[in-house]
Design a protein around this nucleic acid. Structure first.
Lengths: 208, 208
DNA sequence: AACGAAGTTGGTCGATCGTCCAACTTTGCA
DNA sequence: TGCAAAGTTGGACGATCGACCAACTTCGTT
């Protein structure tokens, strides 16, 4: 393995770990499997990280930052695509956003499954148990940013505390995730989206 | 260990496995840990089950049957409690049902966490990957039964296909589960319930 | 009482796990 | 050029895992 400083090696190992977890699950993400995925000898693992837990901690932190970034990116692709977004109603705009998230889930199920597995395994580990709450705090922030864009694009204001709405949005997206991962029935899940979109649209006031 | 036939021993091992999984997680549910929890020597394990996967399969089947039974039982305790249920609106009835589910989740987090871990680990195992879909089919049936009681008690009919509504109900309960497990913020999650209750109440028609 | 079937279990196998060490190579500075 | 620091790595450690076997005990039948 060519020479690299610790930061580079740590980053390479985290990326490798996320690939292994997305493909084979947390249980299969042994130090040997991660090192092999990164193309490193096993001994390099414990030169870069003190323990497997330390790497998992770094993996959760990294993945939290990039995860809902996908959902946000999907949203931006909607409001900048004239074919999709041309003076649609708020309700339709919300539905399109949820649909974009569902599409990203279907296109890369391993990523969201990895998120869930990392969260659950973190809850079982005393040294990692505080991470899921931070993870969800990041989700709420993402939801708030998307809601702010809904506000701006559709010209509305929310008639309830936005943090509460953001949490409800995350709950719905989370439920959709677990539901689809278990059933793999895309059309069935998609059929529930208009109802949720109508719910959130109903708690918005049109600006005068 | 006293003498018992295979069916008894299998049942005892499944119960022990569910206790271990709820307490320590799927990863900690080794054949040795399960046998110890059941008070059996390790060798008894492979006399009753061909493999660890075979026991996990039996555990998922059993837990699916009893899991949403708790939610249903919570609902029944509401509509038979005069103090709670006295001519409340449909919306309030739905909110109380969701609240009862949240209470059951808070009172025994291990059970729902075990459900999630079992589902996720099943998805990674080719011999178990069909189980999560069956698990959710059972959830939908439970939701349909609760919806039927909402209908009867509140005197309404649904203005959308009931199977679709049932799936949305399961999505919301699932999202609530993962959200609370990660944040442990009961009041914050509870605050989202009225919104979801209003959503489902809005797709009901009052009987003339 | 005899005997095959059913149930029980201590001990062990090979595989895999996280972790660590000592030997080695390369780098940057004096 | 010399040498300490930083980076690299083959190999091994004790522990734990799922699985299995052969010896043992108990049961039901005749």
């Amino acid at each position: 393995m060519s020479r690299m400083n610790i930061e580079e090696r740590r980053a390479a190992l985290v990326d490798a770990a996320l690939r292994v977890i997305a493909r084979d699950g947390v249980a299969a993400a042994s130090t040997r499997a991660i090192a092999a995925e990164a193309g490193m000898p096993l001994a390099s693992f414990h030169y870069a990280f003190e323990s497997r837990d330390a790497l998992l901690r770094a993996a959760v932190v990294k993945v939290t930052d990039i995860d809902y970034g996908h959902a946000e990116a999907g949203f931006h692709s909607i409001i900048t695509d004239p074919a999709l977004f041309s003076e649609v109603s708020l309700e339709e705009l919300i539905r399109l956003t949820f649909d974009a998230y569902l599409e990203s889930l279907v296109n890369d199920p391993g990523r969201e499954q990895a998120m869930l597995e990392l969260s659950l395994s973190s809850m079982r580990n005393p040294s990692l148990e505080h991470l899921p709450a931070e993870q969800y705090a990041t989700y709420y922030q993402s939801a708030l940013r998307v809601m702010a864009e809904w506000e701006e694009v559709a010209g509305i204001t929310w008639s309830m505390p936005t943090t509460q709405i953001a949490q409800a949005v995350v709950i719905v997206l989370d439920g959709i995730t677990t539901n689809w991962l278990a059933t793999r029935d895309t059309e069935s899940v998609r059929a529930t989206l208009p109802g949720f979109a109508a719910m959130f649209a109903a708690i918005a006031d049109t600006n005068t």
